[in-house]
Design a protein around this nucleic acid. Structure first.
Lengths: 252, 252
DNA sequence: GATCATCAAATGTCTGGACATTCACCGTAG
DNA sequence: CTACGGTGAATGTCCAGACATTTGATGATC
């Protein structure tokens, strides 16, 4: 089983915090796919008291990453693990999780000067970046229009791949090892532009979700993305109970 | 200062849970308006170990009802409105977490026939329910309009309390022990009605978030709520990284 | 094979203790 | 009056121990 881990007992960071960080790393690495270790094992691995181990585990539990029950032990929640990889939710992941077959139609894929979105990618306005505009379909029905902007060094690979079926992040990771490790996402309600309404097949007075997402990889911007999602057929939904929770976009 | 409280050490309910319930009751009664007692005082009041006291207080802290800091003690947050437990996020909780002072103006509080919302509360359309309509303010600015519908047996207590400052859930729990234990929440973008736009001080073409929330308590509907939140000043926001994540409504 | 009892493992709860860190307040000195 | 240092109070962290409760696995019996 797992070997021992030496914690830094001289630094200001509490032991439980160091353990929590290590547990997250191990979870992300799939090290607990066969089972999360019991408290007693963690006590051995980290050479700390059970109280300290519980402090760390409790936080994973509170976040829904593991469940803990008397007599059963701690268990990793499959869905929650994905939350650790990225955003607690993602519009596309949510929609995919519901079994919709997704496809894209590329409207444009270009190298161009960053211009107005320079700040988003922390580049100069004159610097070249790659922009991708698509219409996204769920089961052949348009549900979103999006524009993705990437630094040129990263976006260059887009010119070599088929973007209608391929998950962009999978490709970036496969080809460049680029994987978002932090990000922000903001959603607001808005009215679609004429072009957006046309692509989505909706009225210009039909409110939509506008999602702006910015991710980073190794402390540098990976992408900036703006997605317009139809509000008439999709909603943002959560369901919770003492032992279960989920969150994401769903068909209305 | 406070006298002692005898806990039931023979029942299945953990001591920390009993203390938590009592603390909620006291908070709702304004008993801690002059200051929340230190751990040592709670140890004396409840005749338990400090660990047990901390277990109870931690949950209040997690819910944002109190803050706790080394050297400073525990403090009641000035306004603890709408502490909604369980959901990974809540519009009111999010807004409060950002330090906005919240208040409400009651537009109406009525007993009436369930009518169209009967299904939401699993009652007959002819059955009486309690409806509450309010405008919600953050730092004196209207940010949301909401309507709350409750079964009459539960909603009756609303007629006895001041709804402009008081946390609805705290009252329901203090007076009835009613506490949501599961729920669903759905958000969509929409255009406000004339009335809503007027109350919010926005244009009728200014898209808003419409949030519909349904909670249950002991397998029975507790409330159904529809909240319209201004999309021009608030956004739904998430930020994540390997060791941190947060999610909720935030000022744009 | 099905059922029941037993036992071990695992988490939850609670107590007690100790030390570290932080803050606020008070007293003293300039 | 202001600034600084000291002190006490308060929470945070960590350890150790013990018992209660729950679950799942195993073995025995029918």
């Amino acid at each position: 089983m797992s070997t021992t881990v030496r914690l830094d007992r001289d630094c200001a960071e509490p032991l439980w915090s160091q353990i929590l960080t290590d547990l997250r790393r191990r979870l992300a690495a799939g090290e607990f796919d066969e089972g999360f270790p019991p408290d007693s094992e963690l006590v051995r691995i980290y050479s700390v008291s059970r109280h300290t181990v519980r402090d760390a585990c409790r936080r994973l539990q509170d976040e829904g990453i593991i469940t803990r029950a008397r007599g059963r032990g701690s268990q990793v929640r499959p869905v929650a693990l994905e939350q650790q990889v990225g955003s607690p939710y993602s519009v596309f992941r949510s929609i995919e999780a519901q079994g919709y077959r997704q496809e894209s139609t590329v409207l444009s894929l270009e190298r161009q000067r960053a211009g107005e979105i320079a700040d988003r990618l922390s580049v100069d306005p004159d610097e070249m970046v790659v922009s991708l505009h698509r219409v996204r379909f769920a089961d052949a029905e348009p549900f979103a229009v999006d524009e993705v902007w990437l630094p040129e060094a990263i976006g260059a690979v887009l010119f070599e791949i088929d973007l209608s079926h391929t998950a962009l992040y999978l490709e970036l990771e496969a080809r460049l090892g680029a994987r978002p490790d932090r990000g922000t996402e903001n959603i607001r309600p808005a009215l679609p532009s004429l072009g957006e309404a046309d692509h989505l097949g909706i009225d210009v007075l039909e409110p939509v979700f506008v999602i702006e997402r910015c991710t980073e990889w190794r402390d540098a911007p990976l992408e900036w993305r703006r997605t317009v999602v139809r509000g008439d057929v999709f909603r943002f939904s959560s369901r919770w109970s003492p032992d279960h929770g989920d969150l994401g976009f769903a068909r209305r």
